[in-house]
């Protein structure tokens, strides 16, 4: 089952990257989460007819992944997988909004083209920001910070537990579908008629596993959803990073950098 094994490989790769030790990895998880969120909001709020304004935002993924030692090519390919939906949703603009909205060296460009380009670029940039966040931050550290943000402890506990058992259950499902595939050659997936037994079996196995996990937790003195670590507060370095990135993102959002740079070069328009 390729989807299952792909997802398992993805998860493993991201987990390995998050274990690195670089300046970005050492930064406070909350600072990284907030800067990623600010980045996404700034990118998404850019004018729908201004794809070029997004250019300065490329500094964020490029610089971060270089400093965090991330494989940039792999990140780019991974982010591209998330694009098709944005392409489909943005494509309608190409057909409905055909009035020329700008001229590049005398060639008219329709508003729809600009809107389409900006939706696709926005999708790409925001996915990249998220991938970089998870490739530099472990989920355990992130969820410890969620408690500080007053997210209900039950929610945080369920989040960490779901994540912890993800690979276990994907392996279980993967071995079940391997067994199924071996007995039904030439089948592309599980037959619809067998899906009830298949997923039902997986559900029963999961419930049984939960029983065993609960017993084990009880033996270790578990008493309700109180997550262990509350996480450390932000240090001075983290504040500097947070404020610096926020300022840079705000500047990129408010100042028309491409026009300014182009204007400096002798007004080519």
């Amino acid at each position: 089952m390729s989807r299952l094994s792909d997802a398992m490989a993805d998860l493993y790769a991201v987990e390995q990257l998050a274990e690195k030790d670089t300046p970005v990895h050492r930064m406070h998880p909350l600072a990284k989460l907030l800067t990623a969120l600010a980045f996404v909001v700034a990118v998404v709020s850019c004018g729908r007819y201004q794809p070029l304004r997004l250019a300065p935002f490329t500094f964020y993924p490029v610089l971060l992944s270089a400093m965090a030692d991330l494989p940039f090519g792999r990140l780019l390919r991974r982010a591209a997988l998330a694009l098709p939906f944005a392409v489909v949703a943005g494509a309608s603009n190409l057909f409905f909004d055909t009035a020329p909205a700008a001229h590049l060296w005398g060639v008219p460009v329709s508003g729809g083209t600009l809107a389409f380009a900006s939706v696709v670029l926005k999708a790409y940039l925001s996915v990249l920001a998220l991938l970089i966040l998870t490739a530099t931050t472990r989920l355990a550290d992130l969820s410890a910070q969620l408690v500080r943000l007053k997210v209900p402890p039950v929610m945080v506990t369920v989040l960490t537990m779901t994540y912890r058992y993800l690979s276990t259950l994907m392996e279980e499902a993967s071995s079940m579908s391997a067994a199924y595939a071996l007995r039904s050659p030439y089948a592309k997936g599980v037959k619809l008629a067998h899906m009830g037994q298949f997923a039902g079996q997986l559900l029963i196995r999961s419930a049984d596993r939960a029983e065993r996990v609960y017993a084990a937790m009880k033996l270790r003195g578990y008493a309700g959803p109180v997550p262990g670590g509350r996480g450390v507060p932000m240090g001075r370095k983290d504040w500097v990073y947070l404020i610096g990135v926020l300022a840079a993102v705000a500047a990129a959002r408010l100042v028309d950098v491409p026009s300014a740079v182009g204007g400096l070069l002798g007004g080519m328009a």
Binding site: Q50, L52, H103, L104, L114, V257, S259, A260, G262, M268
Partner: peptide, 15 residues
């Protein structure tokens, strides 16, 4: 549209 002109395109490429 400010930022969507030839100068802007050149600027974006440089950025």
């Amino acid at each position: 549209i400010p930022g969507t002109s030839a100068a802007g395109l050149v600027g974006a490429a440089i950025t």
